[in-house]
Design a protein around this nucleic acid. Structure first.
Length: 575
RNA sequence: GCGCCUGUAGCUCAGUCGGAUAGAGCAACGGCCUUCUAAGCCGUGGGCCCGGGGUUCGAAUCCCUGCAGGCGCGCCA
């Protein structure tokens, strides 16, 4: 019954279909229409499901109130314990004991796979995320793409897809000519391999300062970039050293976050793959010469044209993205290809998606720009590498871990793996911070908020999980058959209700590419459980009742651990 | 100027297909640890849901319009 088929909405309890089947005939409508109309009352005292009857009033020529009163007299399915008419609403109460049994048994059986479905049927979804720039610091502005992309990567895998994580490196462009020029001028004694991105930024910033006074430097940079393009040995080897040093440094952060990519094919990778795209566009008559540049006209779509070739013949961002899309389609035969990139680039993606569509490829519909809000600094100012106005992610993570460590020193000094747990808690807090709100929201970064461990945060979830583990450990192995009747109270029911909607939440989160839906559901579960924990003693009384309460505890711990893991966050057993 | 996005409590945000009394967290104040982890729980205060029209039995939600902020608008990425 729990696995009733077409529950497409999140935030529903099971049993929806059963109610619809029993009352639809009385109204003379399709059951699935009723199923969709069923809603959840504002508070559970009114009921667990409600059908507003106002829309039927005209058709049936009766008042909503009397319709509701008739509906509740219908023979009810076994899972509904009672029905009440309140105003124009028919309210249904689910059998809470049955719900407890269904939900807890499902979680007991499935473990952290609870909620997993095989929607993907093994098909591939490419996820382009994090996509760092070579020779630039990994700052908090990159965290959204990294955390959202990673969560989606996990979620799609969980739902039966095969995720391919692609770090589309920003490793091409004239800025590297500047970097090499700067290195030629002032690079003596600079240790590329160990100086990290810091020394690269220093060179880059100095170049910009001096180029303002001395324009000849720009020519020098252009020459260096030309040498990279032409495959000049010295230029290439220098550039490769900068690139590898950057990747080595950022690997440290990816390790902390537990992220791995399946591909690091970045911009330079597509250098030799753009000409075929240009040729095809030309062959299909889409390429137009305009002001010396080759463009695809998009005026019929009310968009500015998409520039494919600059007037000097050089390729652009869009050219590369189109070539990359073809490469990914040919290499992975994806069912979906997601681009986790800030909304700043909305127009860019709309443009080149349309170009691919004009080329006649129906898989354009499988391309999706998963956009997200901009990060600024809470105390004003925008992030800018050039102006040195950055908050490095490494610093944020380090501070968070240090703070977690301090708190543990105070609250649980006898823990033996404090460093490990501090890492999980501190990093979890930072990551959760960007996964808790809808993607589109802008973020004004502040240390104070990022390092908050109270309330709706990862540490709160981790704490709740650890609490569950602690109770379960203390209980030991009890084999009694659970007496679910003991869970027939408002506190347990709130927990069960939150647990029961988790599977739909996951599906909805994937459909919308919105990890925050998972985060919110987990918080709801934890809040309900912490209330329950305060109100009801778990290890108490006879074994059958205790077994049911332990079942609830185990379920909460399992779902929180599983959900956090989807978000890329660890859940320690003690903290 | 044009296009897109955002606007809900002091702050950060939820609010499902239009539904019942608009919800959380933080901050403030007041309570709860001899009992399973107090990184927790409970309570109090706090709202012109940006403004104005409209549609509807019913609007934070849909439509129109205005305002404010963000982003973008052919040869950067």
């Amino acid at each position: 019954m729990l696995h009733a088929k077409s529950r497409r909405e999140a935030n529903t309890l099971p049993f929806r279909a059963d109610i619809a089947v029993s009352i639809a005939p009385l109204l003379g409508v399709e059951t699935n229409q009723i199923e969709q109309m069923l809603e959840i009352p504002p508070n559970s005292e009114l009921g667990d499901f409600a059908l507003p009857c106002f829309t039927f009033a005209k058709i049936l020529r009766k008042s909503p109130v009397s319709i509701a009163q008739e509906l509740i007299k219908a023979p009810l399915p076994a899972c509904i314990s009672k029905a009440v008419a309140t105003g124009g609403y028919a309210n249904f109460f689910v059998d809470r004991v049955l719900l407890a049994k269904d939900v807890l048994t499902a979680i007991e059986n499935d473990g952290t796979s609870y909620g997993a479905k095989d929607i993907g049927r093994g098909r591939v979804v490419c996820i382009d995320y994090s996509s760092i720039n070579i020779a630039k610091p990994f700052h908090i502005g990159h965290l959204s793409s990294t955390a959202i992309g990673h969560a989606l990567y996990n979620l799609y895998n969980f739902m039966g897809y095969r995720s391919i994580g692609i770090n589309h490196l920003g490793d091409w462009g004239t800025q590297f000519g500047k970097l090499l020029a700067a290195y030629e001028l002032w690079g003596e004694g600079v240790d590329i391999e160990n100086g990290g991105v810091d020394i690269m930024v220093k060179l880059y910033v100095r170049f910009h300062e001096e180029a303002e006074k001395n324009p000849e430097l720009d020519d020098m940079a252009r020459r260096w970039f030309k040498r990279i393009e032409d495959g000049d040995e010295l230029a290439l080897s220098l550039f490769t050293r900068f690139k590898e040093a950057t990747i080595k440094e950022v690997m440290g952060i990816y390790d902390l976050l537990g992220i791995q990519f399946d591909s690091y094919a970045g911009e330079s990778f597509y250098n030799d793959k753009m000409q075929p795209v240009v040729d095809e566009l030309k062959a299909k008559g889409l390429l137009i010469l305009s002001d010396g540049a080759y463009i695809v006209d998009l005026s019929d779509e009310d968009m500015p044209p998409c520039v494919i070739l600059r007037s000097d013949g050089a390729t652009l961002y869009a050219t590369r993205d189109i070539a990359a899309a073809f490469y990914r389609k040919n290499t992975y035969d994806f069912a979906k290809c997601l681009y986790v990139v800030a909304y700043q680039q909305n127009l860019h993606f709309r443009q080149w998606f349309k170009v691919v569509e004009k080329m006649g490829y129906d898989w354009t519909k499988d391309l999706e720009h998963v956009n997200f809000g901009m990060v600024s600094l809470a105390d004003g100012g925008t992030l800018s590498t050039r102006r040195g106005n950055v908050v490095k992610l490494q610093d944020v993570l380090d501070s968070a871990v240090a703070q977690a460590r301090d708190i543990m020193e105070e609250k649980s000094p006898d823990l033996d793996n404090k460093d490990e747990v501090a890492k999980q808690v501190g990093i979890g807090a930072v990551v959760f911070g960007v996964l808790y709100n809808a993607r589109i929201k802008d973020i004004a970064f502040s240390f104070e908020r990022a390092l908050s461990f109270d309330g709706e945060t990862a540490p709160y979830l981790q704490y709740t999980h650890a609490r569950c583990q602690s109770v379960l450990k203390k209980a030991g192995n009890k084999a009694a058959e659970p007496a679910y009747g003991v869970l027939d109270n408002e506190f347990a029911f709130a927990v069960l209700r939150a647990l029961s909607k988790y599977p739909d939440t996951l599906e909805n989160a994937m459909g919308k590419n919105e990890p925050y839906l998972i985060a919110r559901n987990l918080i709801e579960i934890a809040q309900a459980y912490n209330r329950y924990y305060y109100e009801v003693r778990i290890l108490d009384g006879d074994e059958a009742n205790t077994a049911a309460r332990l079942g609830l505890t185990h379920a909460v711990g399992t779902v929180i651990k599983g959900g956090l893991s989807l978000l890329g966050i660890a859940a320690p057993d003690r903290m």
